[in-house]
Structures are given as structure tokens and as C-alpha cells.
């Protein structure tokens, strides 16, 4: 068994040729494998998210997390980049789609890529994973507690984004949704609405809502972490990618 991996920071080209910092981890073995684009949560490109990238590589995938806030300046600390991006109301949907498309193309350019791409996102990245899956031809998507997929943000919120429910007919791949029953963004009724819409459209999906868990239950470095939900959630993620990203 060869489970050695390579990991480190790389520079990739994002939407409209922007230069993006990204964290890449890939197996060193020569087995054919799928790629996973990790979309970080709203607090930004942090250490815990890089550990998620490492986890995918340890499980045999080439994984990359582009720093979606790279445009806030090279050499700026990721938490300062996140604060600056937040002050601007988050990042535009079109830019996100372009960045994910380029990150996926980068993974597919690596040796031993089998051409299959999964996208997983957390928090705001959960919504963005759904956005990517309804905008790009990918092979699997995981939405971890993404808000504003079903409902628009309340009017007083500074976010420029809108509901994505109308994009559901364009979902290009199976969708795994992992949610906390105690979350209010998205609340259980929003999760139910999305499930019903996908059911109506005949779109393949698998949703799990965990009792005792709220928003951010995968965040190992935060009090929101819920080990039982996270451990089961990871099993669901690897089973799902195992089914959908094998050549």
C-alpha cells in the first residue's frame, strides 16, 4: 500500500485570469484517481480547511482548495482577507463558478487524473458547491450546511447573493447534503424544500440532517464541532465520492 501524499501551496489561474493561491494535496502513487475541489467556509482559507484537503488526499483523491479571497491581496493574512471580503458582501457568484472551474481543470491536468471531479463546500461554500454543480459539468457535489440555496438572504443582510432554487433543473450531478437539525441558516424547512424540489425534478440526491448539530458541525477547531455528526458525515462523503468519482 502506498498512502504517501504530497501537499503544499500552489498558484492557479482563477476566473478572468486572476492569480489564486491554493492548497493542493495529492497521492504520490500512480493509481488513477478522481479530483475534489474544496470550497472553504465564509471565515476563509484557514488551517482547518487545509486539513480537509489533506484528508481527501489520504483517502486517495487529488484535492485542492483555492483561496477564494486571494484577490484581497497577496501576502495578506487569510483572516484579514476574509474580513475584507465580508465587508464587500462576499464574493460574486460568477467569480466563484469561474474559480471552481479553473480549480477543477487544474486537478484534471495532473498526472493520474481520471477526469472525474467532485466539489464539496462548507457554510457559504455549501451554497457555492450547489452553485458550481448547477453551473458546471461535474460528477458529484456535497453541500455542507449551505444557507441561501432556497431562501434569499434577509433584506438587511449585506450579501449580494440570491436563492439558487431556480437553478435546480440544471443540477449536473448527484448531490449529497449534510445538515444540522439545529441550524437556522439553512433551517430544516429550507432543507425539506430543497429535497422536495430535487425529488420533483428527479435529481439524484441524498440528504442527512443530524440531531444535536447546528451550523459548522464539521469544524474541528470550533465549539460547533459535533463529533458524532462529523464522523458519520465523513463516512457519507467518502461513500458518495467512492461511488461517483471512480473511473
Amino acid at each position: 500500500m502506498n498512502d504517501a501524499i504530497w501537499a503544499g501551496t500552489v498558484t492557479i489561474t482563477g476566473h478572468e485570469q486572476a492569480e489564486l493561491e491554493a492548497y493542493l494535496a495529492r497521492p504520490l502513487g500512480d493509481r488513477s484517481r478522481g479530483g475534489v475541489v474544496v470550497i472553504h467556509h465564509m471565515p476563509g482559507y484557514d488551517e482547518a480547511t487545509k486539513e480537509i484537503v489533506l484528508k481527501f488526499a489520504a483517502h486517495g483523491y487529488a484535492a485542492i482548495c483555492p483561496n477564494l479571497y486571494s484577490r484581497e491581496g497577496a501576502g495578506v493574512a487569510p483572516d484579514d482577507q476574509a474580513a475584507a471580503a465580508r465587508a464587500k458582501g462576499g464574493i460574486p457568484d460568477g467569480q466563484l463558478v469561474g474559480d471552481v472551474a479553473e480549480a477543477a481543470a487544474y486537478l484534471n491536468s495532473l498526472d493520474h487524473a481520471n477526469g472525474r471531479i467532485g466539489v464539496i463546500g462548507y457554510c457559504s461554500g455549501g451554497r457555492q458547491a450547489f452553485l458550481a454543480a448547477t453551473s458546471l459539468r461535474i460528477d458529484a457535489a456535497v453541500d455542507c450546511y449551505g444557507a441561501f440555496v432556497v431562501n434569499d438572504p434577509p433584506a438587511e443582510f449585506p450579501m449580494k447573493v440570491k436563492s439558487l432554487l431556480g437553478r435546480a433543473p440544471d443540477l449536473s450531478c448527484p448531490l449529497l447534503g449534510l445538515f444540522g437539525e439545529e441550524d437556522s441558516f439553512p433551517g430544516p424547512e429550507e432543507v425539506a424544500t430543497l429535497a422536495a424540489e430535487l425529488e420533483k425534478l428527479g435529481k439524484e440526491h441524498e440528504f442527512h440532517s443530524y440531531p444535536g448539530a447546528g451550523h459548522g458541525f464539521f469544524s474541528v477547531d470550533r465549539p460547533a464541532y459535533r463529533p458524532a455528526a462529523a464522523v458519520d458525515g465523513w463516512q457519507k462523503v467518502f461513500a458518495f465520492f467512492g461511488r461517483n468519482l471512480s473511473a
Binding site: A83, A84, R222
Partner: peptide, 30 residues
């Protein structure tokens, strides 16, 4: 900027976060 949200560093689920900034000097001026 003042917002009630997840902290980056404090060990609580939510905190009142205050950023003192100077956007003209870039995101690191915070």
C-alpha cells in the same frame, strides 16, 4: 465593522466581532 457571528479565534460559537480598519491601507490594516 461590528457583527455578531462565528469568531475566528475566540472559543465560543458566536461572538460580537469588531474590526477597526483602514481600507485605503489594505486588508492588513485591521
Amino acid at each position: 465593522a461590528v457583527y455578531v457571528d462565528h469568531p475566528f479565534h475566540a472559543c465560543h460559537e458566536h461572538t460580537v466581532n469588531i474590526d477597526f480598519t483602514n481600507p485605503a491601507e489594505g486588508p492588513s490594516a485591521r
